[in-house]
Design a protein around this nucleic acid. Structure first.
Lengths: 72, 72
DNA sequence: GTATAATGTAATATATAGATTACATTATTG
DNA sequence: CAATAATGTAATCTATATATTACATTATAC
């Protein structure tokens, strides 16, 4: 599932590992979320938002059509 | 985890069962999410947003402080 | 160009989201 | 107030988010 995490993370100058540490998750999890291969929980989404100083909509919002195309 | 789902669902005149059907989940899952006793996945959050015509921030956003208080 | 940091990704294990079944409680409507 | 619809919630099961370990590839710095 597509998202804006990678660009947001880089803009606050964090590596995947640093972000992972901040939100208490493994680097792999961050990597997979950025790649759109994961369906994170709301809690994790919120923690990521706080860490990179963005809102849910800014990082994770998808219009319904994009959603329906991106079947995965 | 607190959220605005119940009020949004009622405002589009759906029962928990109807919402559950629309998003392809059980009524129990909807109930628990409304009660703040569940940590839904991003996909489910998005589908709920589409069903009640709200955004992620409108339904699920929590400021960091509220978050930190609401430990669960 | 080589060392090192950062990232991608695969296999297996564990924790937990969500389903299922069931029953109780709380609205709502006649 | 009685019947029914809507909702709360508990126990058990299944699917999947996330951890762990490990190794490969890609970027960055010397």
């Amino acid at each position: 599932m597509k998202n804006q995490l990678k660009i947001a993370r880089i803009s606050v100058d964090l590596t995947q590992q640093q972000l992972a540490d901040k939100v208490g998750v493994t680097r792999q999890t961050v990597s997979l979320i950025e790649k759109g291969k994961y369906n994170p929980t709301l809690k994790l989404c919120l923690q990521i938002c706080y860490a990179v100083n963005k809102t849910l909509d800014e990082l994770f919002w998808l219009e319904k059509e994009e959603w329906e195309n991106a079947k995965n």
